[in-house]
Structures are given as structure tokens and as C-alpha cells.
Amino acid sequence: MKRKRMQLLSIPYVFWIIGFTVIPLLFVFAKAATSPEGDATFGNLIAIFDPVHRKALFLSIELAFVSSLVCILISYPAALIIKSSKIRNKKTLQFIMILPMWMNFILRILAIQMLISKNGIINHFLTAAGIGRINIINTEFAIVLGMVYDYLPYMLLPVLNGVLAIPDDIIEASKDLGADRFTVLTKIMLPLSLSAIGSGITMVFVPSMTEFVIANILGGGKIQLLGNVIEQEFSVSMNWNLGSGLSVTLMVFVLLTTLIFGRGDSDKGRGFVI
């Protein structure tokens, strides 16, 4: 067939890539490399070493790390349980577990805020039960809770797919050959689902690290993640050059995460049954 002519069909998309992906990113780099007066500078790029920014960066990484870890600790046992259960309709169960990811992101944070705020539902019940209040809103814990709630389906999706895809034969065979449960888990299940966990980590870690909305709503604006700092440079301080410089730093960390944990390959990470 006329491959050459068919290739021409992607011309509109090539223009779109240039116009709305490449050029905008070049603008970020250009802004990052200049001062507000327009002189070339490295100042915005090394601004990440400024104590305030460095602290925000470390906190972002820390909270994203904790959130990813909690998501794995919730998802992996769930996947193992579903795998070993005799439920016939595993795909439907999987569908129900990842369905909340399609609910509006802001609304899900609103729901969490409503539950944990000072006069929220959890505190209402705790007071009624005579236990007293817990103050978790506006803490790092609240932010992690929001991140875990928001991004758990993104971990469940690849991990469930990865674990459910491990052939039963292999597990049977290893058991026949005398492997105990622990050996099956460490020598069969984990190695075979490692890439799924990796793509889950990327899918939770990257949005958590670059987050500013959850921190704004559940952190009460007191806890600054790198995303919050960048957002404020654009909306409050109006130092777009500094904001761009910090964005470039953020991109580097996103890139590093994908390089370390991979994106998962095209099939394993996928699978929203509809």
C-alpha cells in the first residue's frame, strides 16, 4: 500500500505537537533561563537550592514516597486475595475497585475534607462516642490521606492486572515442587508483578509529587509542596521566571521517576474494563 501517502495523514498532528507541545515547553525553558528583566541567568534554575524551595521539594518527595508506599501496601494484598479467591467475576470486582478514579478529582478531595475537617463527620462521631476529637486536617497526614484516597485506583489498576495475569500453572507447579507460601510470594508472585508495581509507583508518585490542590485544600495552605510554590509564583507573586525555573526542576524529577520505575509496558499497566 502507499505507505508514504498514508503517513501524510499525521501532518495535522505534527503541527499540533509543534504548536502545543514543543513551543510551549520551549517557552518554559526560555522563561526559566531569563530574569524578569530579560537577562540570561541560571538563577531560576538554581533557586531550588534556596532553603524554602529545597524544603518544599524534599517534602513533596517525602509525601509522594509515603503515599506510593501506602498504596502498594493496600493494593498488593488486595490483589493476592482476589487472585486466590474463587470469585468467578474477577474482572467486575476489578472494575468496581478502580471505578472511583473516574469521579471528579476535586469532588473526591471535597469528600475527604468533609470527613476529616474539625467539625467534620468523623469528629462528630468520635465526640458522640465520647472519644474526643482528632485534629488531622491541615497536617501532612491529611495530605497523605488525600493523596492515597485520590491515587489508590491508579495503583490498584496495574497491580491487579499484573497479579491476575500470572498464570495459575506456574503457581501450581511451584507448589507441587515443594515451595511454601512465602517462597511462592517472593520467588514467583513478586518477580512476575514487579513491572506492574513499577508502573503503579509512577502513576501515584508523579501526580503526588507535583500536586498543589490536595495540599491547598487538606493542608490549609500552611504546608508548602513544590507544586504550591510554583502555583503561587504564577498566581500570587507573579514571578513567572522563577515559577518556570522551578517547573523545569520538577520536570527533571518526573523524568527521573519514570526512568527508575518505568512506565510499565503498554499492556500490563492498562486495563480499564468497560
Binding site: I17, F20, T21, V22, I23, P24, L25, F27, V28, K31, V206, P207, M209, T210, F212, G227, I230, E231, F234, W240, G243, S244, S247, L250, M251, V254, T258, R263
Partner: peptide
């Protein structure tokens, strides 16, 4: 190039488009 908007942080994509 197709992967760039998918992998990049939303905040960076948003800022980049806005600057342009």
C-alpha cells in the same frame, strides 16, 4: 512526542500552554 503530555506533570503542561 505523544508521550510528553501524558508523562509530564499537569502543572507543567498547564503553565507551558499558558505562557504560550
Amino acid at each position: 512526542f505523544t508521550n510528553i503530555p501524558l508523562l509530564n506533570a499537569d502543572i507543567v503542561t498547564g503553565i507551558a500552554l499558558m505562557l504560550w
